[in-house]
Design a protein around this nucleic acid. Structure first.
Length: 377
DNA sequence: TTCCAGGCCT
DNA sequence: AGGCCTGGAA
């Protein structure tokens, strides 16, 4: 019973209380009015067409790069009707240089749908906006807020960064669960009015003060409540995208010896360790039937005298990690006909100068150092 | 020179 | 989850 009460109490303190935290939005709004950007070409208008056009251009593209494109675009296509009627080549030409050309194709399609389905007037409902091509949840909210004063939450990269720092949000903001929680915050923090200033304020904070590197915390209106700043974790938040787990592969390498010689294999020119000599390998699938695999491999080359497991090791490449399970196999006799498989007997005393991959050479020299290499196990 | 962020879509 | 494409950072 007590546990339930406590956990509910915790949740309320951590999340729900912010629903009533009007000071957050108030601080953002006050800062925006005094220090935010007010003179951008797409501001000071409620023309949904202009707002929409600017928001699409501003996806993945910085303000400075967008401005000349925005103005040129508006000269050629001053309204949604002219854009809808324009040839695609013209639209693409106007977009040329901005990148992410799917945006331009979606822009054109969207204009045509707004004309066909809404008589040329962008809908006010963020959910309807988000159904249009190229408009996701965040862009829909921005358009609805700036064009119609609708109380809708944005969550773009800038806002994620601000939230991650102010509230000390751990975890990569692009990850589903983290992003879901950020959306909850974004909605809960929405002010009752002044949605335009608030929305623009969040964008401007992220773009001008709460930037990725070297944020200007001394000028930030949220510094007094910023968890990252208080904990000196501004540089660590938001958590950067986790490197995709390096694929891992495993193999079994055989150190096959006879007398003073080791059996080496010429590797193909392409692929890992291309063109080098290395040890013969068998797949890990064969490890279950290890004895059989070894005998099958070795039989053509001589009599099996002994076998033992060596110290496993791993090697990290740029694109994967290789786990190697080496085994030593000693032969009491050997045949000569081995060249057809790219195999060759190599004198142990020349291994130090052999064209071997570093980890393989290390393995062989290590085994050699024990003097066990040359003895029958 | 390489690495990474960024909103939407498939 | 990965591709799109570029500018800015490392």
């Amino acid at each position: 019973m007590k546990g339930i009460v406590e956990s509910r109490g915790k949740a309320a303190a951590g999340e729900v209380s912010e629903y009533e935290d009007s000071s957050f939005s108030a601080q953002v709004i006050a800062w925006q009015k005094q220090h935010g950007r007010h003179k951008l070409p797409w501001q000071n208008t409620r023309d949904a067409y202009r707002v929409w056009l600017s928001e699409i251009m501003l996806q993945q593209t910085q303000v400075a790069a967008v401005i000349p494109y925005y103005q040129r675009f508006l000269e050629r296509c001053p309204d949604v009707f002219s854009l809808a009627a324009a040839p695609s080549e013209d639209v693409m030409a106007l977009w040329s240089g901005l990148g992410y050309y799917t945006r331009a194709r979606n822009l054109h399609k969207c204009a045509q749908r707004v004309v066909a389905e809404y008589g040329g007037r962008f809908p006010e409902d963020p959910e309807l906006l988000a159904d249009l091509p190229g408009i996701g949840r965040s862009t829909a909210a921005a358009i609805a807020a700036f064009s119609y004063g609708r109380r809708a939450a944005i969550l773009d990269g800038n806002v994620k960064r601000v939230f991650a720092r102010v509230f000390g949000v751990d975890g990569y903001p692009g990850a589903k669960p983290v992003e879901d929680r950020l959306w909850l915050r974004a909605v809960a923090l929405l002010p009752p009015q002044d949605i335009e200033s608030y929305t623009q304020g969040l964008m401007d904070l992220g773009a001008t003060l709460c930037v990725r590197g070297k944020p200007a915390c001394e000028r930030c209106p949220l510094a007094g409540r910023c968890v990252a700043l208080a904990q000196d974790r501004v540089a660590e938040l938001p958590v950067s995208k986790p490197r995709k787990a390096v694929p891992e592969k495993e193999t079994v390498m055989l150190v096959i010896t006879h007398g003073e010689d080791v059996l080496l294999e010429q590797r193909p020119d392409s692929g890992i360790w291309g063109g080098l000599l290395s040890l013969p390998e068998i797949g890990v699938a064969d490890a279950a039937r290890f004895d059989t695999a070894v005998r099958t491999l070795v039989a053509p080359y001589g009599e099996l005298a002994g076998c033992r497991k060596l110290q496993p090791f791993s090697h990290v490449f740029t694109h994967f990690k290789l786990h190697v399970a080496p085994f030593q196999v000693a032969l009491s006799s050997r045949s000569q006909a081995i060249a057809e498989r790219g195999l060759l007997w190599y004198p142990a005393h020349r291994l130090a100068d052999a064209p071997l991959p570093a980890p393989v050479k290390k393995l062989l020299l290590g085994v050699l150092g024990t003097r066990d290499l040359l003895s029958v196990v």
